[in-house]
């Protein structure tokens, strides 16, 4: 199975390659990718150099251009696709049908993957994207159980890629408006979920509060993990009840499910975290590479060491094993 690893910076890309990543995904330093955060991403020269480095070491590079083009500014996204082709990317990860059409018409040799942002969660829609835009791979949304993934693979020739580690999003990815609601900016259009410019942490008597767009969305007492700055993981009190309204602040870790995912016909395992450090990238990649190598060799899965890297310091197997509250 192929391990697809995140890289927010050229240093993280090199760390992923050195740690044994088969494939790295990354983005340009603008609103064309869904991780448009301060100090992150690649300018055009860095992208060309990163692709060259990865190819020299036998790894592939996928470029995420997975936000939705703004009316009147489509050229920014078109240029990104053309620059990805020129940089020698092995594929582009796209979500918008118009951009997929542009890429298919203007760069037919550039492999197209369907981003999780497209929220394609059944075989009919995946086959539609394959028929219209010759999409070769789909990144499945994080709402499917393993039997559902197997059912999709039984009905499509398109390769499937699934998330196995990192932060979780609320259900219909690419359609979430929570960040827009509070800050006016969203991951879908601007590439920023809970933009850092709208996030404010404040410590008072050992309690740590986080505000998003001026609204307090969580307060952690002493000894509790720091609160996550997205509305979907906010903790609210209503009628004397306190709880996480949308989802718990836990991180996906499906390391032990890799054999079942393989059996379900999954081609590639995706690690979330382009906003994380090169240290995170190296540790997670090394761990998952060891797991996949063990699986290929018919050996038992190694015990993970990734717990401390989880967002919120807590892990879950997500929808793969549906045990809803």
């Amino acid at each position: 199975m192929e391990i697809v690893c995140p890289a927010g910076t050229p240093a993280a890309l090199r760390a992923a390659v050195k740690a044994g990543a088969h494939t790295i995904y990354c983005g340009f330093n603008d609103e064309t990718n869904a991780r448009n955060f301060p100090g992150l991403n690649f300018d055009r020269a860095e992208m060309r150099e990163g692709v060259r480095f990865a190819h020299d070491m036998g790894s592939k590079v996928l470029i995420a251009i997975n936000t939705f083009p703004r009316a009147g500014a489509e050229h920014i996204w078109h240029n990104a696709v053309s620059d990805a082709a020129e940089a020698g990317a092995d594929a582009v990860i796209l979500a918008d049908p118009g951009l997929l059409a542009y890429a298919a018409q203007n760069h037919p040799a550039l492999r197209r993957h369907l981003s999780v942002q497209a929220a394609a969660a059944n075989a009919d829609v995946i086959n539609y994207y394959a028929k219209c835009f010759d999409v070769k791979r789909v990144v499945l949304p994080r709402v499917l159980s393993i039997p559902e993934i197997a059912a999709i693979n039984a009905e499509t020739e398109v390769e499937t890629e699934v998330f196995v580690f990192g932060g979780l999003c609320v259900m219909a990815e690419g359609r979430c408006s929570l960040s827009s609601f509070v800050t006016g900016l969203s991951p879908n259009m601007n590439g920023v979920c809970s933009p850092a410019s709208h996030v404010d942490y404040h410590e008072d008597n050992d309690a740590l509060s986080v505000r998003l767009g001026g609204y307090t969305i969580h307060r952690a007492e002493k000894g509790e993990p720091a609160p996550y700055p997205t509305l979907c993981k906010g903790c609210f009190t209503s009628a004397d009840k306190k709880g996480y309204l949308f989802e718990d602040p836990v991180s996906l870790n499906a390391e032990q499910l890799i054999p079942q995912l393989k059996k379900a016909g999954v081609t590639a395992l995706k690690i979330e975290g382009r906003q994380r450090s090169r240290s995170y990238v190296a540790q997670v990649v090394r761990n998952f590479r060891a797991a996949v190598d063990a699986l290929e060799a018919g050996q038992p899965m190694p015990e993970g060491m990734l717990a401390q890297l989880s967002e919120g310091q807590a892990g879950t197997t997500g929808a793969y094993r549906k045990i809803w509250r």
Partner: peptide, 13 residues
């Protein structure tokens, strides 16, 4: 020096 992950240190406070 890349020995730790910033987010992990932040979440663990």
């Amino acid at each position: 020096h890349g020995a730790y992950d910033g987010d992990a240190l932040f979440f663990s406070r």
